[in-house]
Design a protein around this nucleic acid. Structure first.
Length: 388
RNA sequence: GCAAGGGUGGUCGAGUGGUUAAUGGCACCGGGCUGUAAACCCGGCAGACGGAAGUCUUACAUAGGUUCAAAUCCUAUCCCUUGCA
């Protein structure tokens, strides 16, 4: 039987690896950064830009948000998220598991699933592994995430163990339901593709907070169930940065070598490089678009805040070394003026640049791995980023 | 010229004898943002000293006055708005 996705390593340097991920919709070079498009849009950035200049091969969508608005039925009726949004490259949908964490005040959790009070209008909604899989089949993404519970970063041992055990049971339920839905052809994104099954793929999620033994335990349980790819969840959710790096160093190399490893929700450019160094292949993060919207720009010499008065007369681009169309044309002074006057274009342009910077950084990461010079690249990169 | 109403910190605007260095909004300055409840949130915003609790100085058009105490009451002056000439 053909696989829903194909992934193989093309180069390796230490634990860092380069690979090609083929989905039914696009070929993706890893390590890859996936822009976040929670509500069926990468905030402030047109698909044209993502496709042409930025050349993003895969973006995210979110089960919870799209379920509330515009609703599953509507998206299913309009042929799935690809058709509805016109994004024809790959999609990965998050399961709503992160909202179990981020909407903690609006939800009640038990073994069956999670009752949410909608953050939009307060309506009670019930999300479970089965419901999440139904929604994700209707959305039709290439990569579907299991429904997990994401405990806070500083969760204690007992709480983390209970959580991870439930996540493992939910993972099994997710997989069973997922398979059933695939058999019933409920996937709206189905596409006949040579050498691929045309089906959706399903990724498992490893939890365990900052507890290494629990991480190992979660890894074993997840691999035992068996998935097309494996994600590290529950990092950058309030724990110390050192804890995150410790977990990555410990966990990533132990994860299956023949499947993509996805670090969920991370992170800063430095985090990405560090994680690649430990063997991670896929990333997503709201940071480039959220910070971009609020005046934060990432550059090859560290972060800057375009609101700062020191940029008022600065005729230089955000980043002199950046080839993106924003840096080719606009000055910091102009961008600051746009931000200060509340012009939406400021958010649009900085988000665009930030995505360009993240995607470009991953391009350089891949290049360095292929040349066997990733260690050197990492050292230089981290030094430059902390220069500012 | 007469009549009425006003002049408050960068700005708009509360406050009409006592925890008022003076509520708010905006502007300004700075910080934060990691599987997006986020075009958002937090802090600062008279000056000087101090790490800080704090201390001192100067402040509600200007100049006097009343009072234990004034942005708040009184007098004069200047200026603004509206109406009538």
């Amino acid at each position: 039987m053909n696989k829903p996705i194909e992934w193989h390593v093309t180069a390796q340097d230490g634990e860092a690896r380069c690979g090609i991920l083929q989905t039914r919709r696009s070929e993706i070079e890893t390590p890859v950064f996936m822009p976040v498009g929670t509500q069926g849009t990468v905030k402030g950035v047109r698909f044209e830009w993502l496709e042409d200049e930025l050349d993003a091969r895969i973006i995210l969508g979110n089960t919870y948000h799209l379920w509330l608005r515009p609703g599953v039925e509507l998206i299913r009726d309009l042929g799935g998220l690809h058709k509805f949004s016109t994004w024809n490259r790959s999609l990965l949908t998050d399961s709503g598991g992160f909202q179990v964490f981020s909407l903690t005040d609006l939800r009640k959790l038990n073994e069956d699933g999670v009752e949410f009070r909608s953050h939009v209008d307060g309506t009670k909604m019930f999300l479970s592994p089965e419901v999440s899989m139904e929604i994700q089949a209707a959305l039709g993404a290439e990569i579907v995430m299991v429904f997990d519970e994401c405990p806070p970063g500083d969760a204690g041992l007992d709480m983390t163990r209970k959580s991870l055990e439930m996540t493992a049971r939910w993972a099994k339920r997710s997989k069973d339901k997922f398979n059933q839905l695939q058999d019933e052809e409920k996937d709206t994104g189905f596409l006949e593709v040579e050498n691929l099954s045309g089906r959706q793929s399903l990724f498992g999620i490893i939890q365990g907070a900052g507890h290494l033994d629990l991480r190992r335990e979660s890894l074993e349980k997840t691999v035992e169930i068996g998935f097309d790819g494996y994600a590290i969840g529950g990092l950058s959710v309030g724990e110390e940065k050192a804890v995150m790096y410790e977990v990555l160093e410990f966990l990533a190399p132990q994860m299956p070598k023949d499947a993509p490893r996805y670090l969920m929700g991370v992170g800063t450019p430095e985090d990405l490089v560090e994680a690649v160094y430990h063997g991670v292949d896929m990333f997503d993060c709201v940071m480039p678009t959220r910070n971009g919207r609020t005046g934060g720009a990432f550059t090859s010499r560290g972060k800057i805040n375009i609101r700062n008065a020191k940029f008022a007369k600065d005729g230089e681009p955000l980043d002199n070394d950046c080839p993106c169309s924003v840096c080719q044309r606009y000055s910091r002074a102009y961008l600051r003026h746009l931000y200060q006057t509340g012009e939406m274009l400021a958010s649009v342009l900085i988000s665009h640049h930030n995505l360009a910077f993240f995607l470009d950084t991953m391009r350089k990461v891949r290049e360095a791995i292929k040349l066997g010079k990733f260690g050197e690249f990492r050292r230089d990169f981290l030094r430059r980023m902390s220069n500012n």
